[in-house]
Nucleic acid binder design. Structure first.
Lengths: 125, 125
DNA sequence: CAGCATCCCTTAAGATACTG
DNA sequence: CAGTATCTTAAGGGATGCTG
């Protein structure tokens, strides 16, 4: 009996710790565009405009804001290039690259999901 | 030259497809609480109140709304139990369980991130 | 090009009270 | 217990125009 209770207690603690871990991750990744931006940068460095073109629907204001937050959290680096009209290059930091696993899983799930939706649609017709 | 251009073109297409995949996933998971709810359910079935207790800070209204959306997308199942005051049990569907990889990566990253923050703090003092 | 300032509107979401 | 209804507020986020 004591053993069983202890086990449950440990498991409950385990859940809490894991839920908190998810929450921690979510806090860093919150915002409508952050994960899309990181995904885009996971393919290589990008300039401001390139990001705006690649992240569908984002405006300059939001892009700017979310990039700042990502930089503050040490996930990306920002480099001002000394070109005629200045350009700025964004890049995933080493720490930012540790998010790659999450991104990859999201890519896989999304690809699979789209396939499923199409299959479901075909099955109906 | 033609080869090189073709390669670039293919890669660019690859990025777009992947970014769209991420977006597809994000569309399903959007909302302040959805990932937390799924995480909680990934540990087993939960009743409405249990979820509200486990997902820190969520109100009944939001919990109800996000559960409905998750159900519509086929990620969770809802079972009304015929008890004296009725109870309702929520559970990840088989399809919902395919999100487990994403959740796990988020747990890992969050655990690691917390450690890093603590290390960083220690280093300063 | 990069990005800030301003204005403005829509949506998210919290609080509270109520029902089967 | 498991929600729903209503109200209200805060925040998110778009459009435009401007600057180094």
């Amino acid at each position: 009996m004591e053993n069983k209770d202890a086990k449950i207690s440990i498991n409950e603690e385990g859940c809490k710790v894991k839920l908190r871990a998810v929450q921690d991750t979510l806090d860093i990744l919150k915002g409508k565009w952050k994960i899309s931006i990181i995904s885009s940068l996971s393919f290589g460095k990008r300039r401001f405009m390139e990001l705006q073109r690649e992240v569908d629907g984002i405006g300059a204001k939001m892009l700017s804001k979310e990039l700042q937050e990502l930089e503050i959290n040490g996930l990306i680096s920002r480099t001002v290039c000394d070109t005629k009209p200045i350009t700025v290059e964004y890049e995933l930091s080493d720490y930012g690259k540790t998010l790659q696993n999450i991104i990859n899983e999201m890519i896989d799930w999304g690809l699979n999901h789209r396939t499923n939706i199409i299959e479901r649609y075909k099955a109906k017709s």
